[in-house]
Amino acid sequence: MFTVKDAAKRLRRSEKFVRDEIRLGRLHADNSNRNTPRRASIRLRESDIQAYLKRLRG
């Protein structure tokens, strides 16, 4: 599992870009603190990052 920061490094993009892609539904992520007042703890799976990269490459 990757944090947004780790995924951004892997994708060579900013954390904001990764969060935007997640928000737009282009990149799947798990939100573990969805029902709490704390800031969400977003995690991405390696397989989801690979699938995203594959879609980009066509």
Results as ranks from 00 to 15, higher is better:
Met1Asp: 00
Met1Trp: 01
Met1Val: 02
Met1Thr: 03
Thr3Met: 04
Thr3Glu: 04
Val4Gly: 06
Val4Asn: 07
Lys5Ala: 13
Asp6Cys: 00
Ala8Met: 01
Lys9Glu: 15
Arg10Asp: 11
Arg10Pro: 04
Arg13Glu: 05
Arg13Cys: 03
Glu15His: 09
Val18Gly: 08
Asp20Ser: 14
Asp20Val: 13
Asp20Ile: 12
Glu21His: 14
Ile22Leu: 11
Ile22Cys: 13
Arg23Cys: 12
Arg23Gly: 13
Leu24His: 15
Leu24Asn: 15
Leu24Ala: 15
Gly25Ser: 03
Gly25Val: 01
Arg26Thr: 08
Leu27Ala: 06
Ala29Val: 06
Ala29Glu: 05
Asp30Glu: 14
Ser32Lys: 08
Ser32Gly: 03
Arg34Val: 00
Arg34Ala: 05
Arg34Glu: 06
Asn35Ile: 00
Thr36Leu: 05
Pro37Ser: 11
Pro37Gln: 07
Arg38Glu: 10
Arg38Cys: 04
Ala40Met: 01
Ser41Val: 10
Ser41Lys: 09
Ile42Leu: 13
Ile42Glu: 06
Arg43Asn: 05
Leu44Gln: 01
Arg45Asp: 13
Ser47Met: 03
Ile49Val: 10
Gln50Phe: 07
Ala51Ser: 14
Ala51Asp: 13
Tyr52Leu: 08
Tyr52Trp: 10
Leu53Gly: 09
Lys54Gln: 00
Arg55Asn: 01
Arg55Leu: 01
Leu56Ile: 05
Leu56Gly: 07
Leu56Cys: 09
Arg57Lys: 15
Gly58Val: 01
